[in-house]
Design a protein around this nucleic acid. Structure first.
Length: 107
DNA sequence: AAGGTGACCGGCC
DNA sequence: TGGCCGGCCACCT
């Protein structure tokens, strides 16, 4: 009973454990629309109003904080990640593979 | 209704 | 990884 595409994205994002991150493509695949990775980013844009959506845990496949530009400050996203134990240098996540979390495609 | 847009991804060099 | 290009899909005007 998903209201719309966004709700689905939020559902996945909320499942991201602390200290872990995932990519837009991974979420897209979890939703079944791997090709709509861009939509995931769009949903994240709307997630700005959602407090339950940790958008800072979502990065692109390179582990780059592509969306940091959309956060309040310029390094807010990085601060949040580092706060969870994730090392971020130059807007890029260190050990990206190590902190990468694959969303459960359980819907 | 049509067109533009975007926090992407994958392939290629 | 870095740069360029095409495809993709839902949302907004």
């Amino acid at each position: 009973m998903e209201e719309n595409f966004f709700e689905r994205v939020y559902a996945i994002a909320r499942q991201i454990p602390e200290g872990k991150v995932t990519s837009y493509g991974a979420i897209a695949k979890a939703l079944g629309t791997a090709r709509s990775a861009r939509m995931v980013g769009w949903a994240m844009n709307a997630s700005h109003n959602m407090e339950d959506v940790p958008a800072h845990r979502v990065v692109n496949r390179k582990g780059l904080l592509s969306g940091k530009h959309h956060f309040d400050g310029t390094n807010l996203m990085q601060q949040l990640l580092e706060n969870e134990g994730i090392i971020v240098v130059d807007n890029q996540i260190v050990d990206f593979e190590n902190v990468f979390w694959m969303p459960k495609m359980d819907l």
